[in-house]
Amino acid sequence: MSLLSTHRPGNAATGDDALVVVPARHPWRWVATGLVLIVLAQFVHGLVTNPGWDWPAFAGYFLEKSIVEALLLTIGLTAAGAVLGFLGGIPLAAMRLSRNPVLAAVSWTYIWVFRSVPLLVQLLFWANLGYLYESLQFGIPFGPGISFPTTGLISSFGAALIGLALHEAAYAGEIIRAGLLSVDHGQHEAAAALGIPRTRQFWRIVLPQAMRAILPNAANLLVNLLKSTSIVYVLAIGELFYQVQVVYGRTGRVVPLLMVATVWYVILTAALSVLQYYTERHFARGAVRALPPTPFQRLRRALR
């Protein structure tokens, strides 16, 4: 309004072209920024000066052998849980989308049950399976087979892995189903009209497009799983959180060791986030007209 009103014809003598545009000032933004910076500085100051954090102990334990071994176990549990979980999720999603009412109902019930039971409770169930079934038998249903003692067959690590995988599969199934539903019906029709075989339709046409909707949720699930592995400490498995507890039980240095675990979880989550970024980028091909540059490409351009 003000710009328009100053621009009157016949005003050229005062030099309208030379008018300077002054951006609006935002004093409260400066005040808010200042306050946030003060709080942040206080927090950092506390981290550095409070002896309770015991940074020398943190540094000493961060790469200690038992901690690194526990870390590897955590990564292994996460990876195995994720792979098994998503492998289980694919048939669950397919069954729930099936026109066969029995398959759909079984999948629905599985997801209902395994989303209802807390992971901790489930883990304890698997660890105590021996009380329920003394031996497990493999063979023809209701027929002959070979039997094994349950406790020999399912170690506590096995129990943890089964629990995590079954738990993950329920969530993964729903995430995959959501992705499949997000693919336009016309894509299924086009693939069918071209006579493309059914499995090829799924892997080549539908799934790559579903991945765009699946990935952000799958990444959430994966990060959640990474931290959920800390629950298996109840089965006395030497993953990161268990090992940290063992060490501070011995040394009494609770806070620095909790920080060791925390920082490792943060680093792993950061690594997963980077992985997520590039995977999402890969599956964005064709979905946007031109892919935005990666942070590295942006940096290189800025430095040039």
Binding site: G186, Q187, A190, L194
Partner: peptide
């Protein structure tokens, strides 16, 4: 169907 071509109103090309 592989012997019968079909062209859709909305093209239905595979976007990826």
């Amino acid at each position: 169907r592989a012997g019968i071509g079909f062209v859709f109103q909305n093209f239905n090309l595979f976007p990826h």
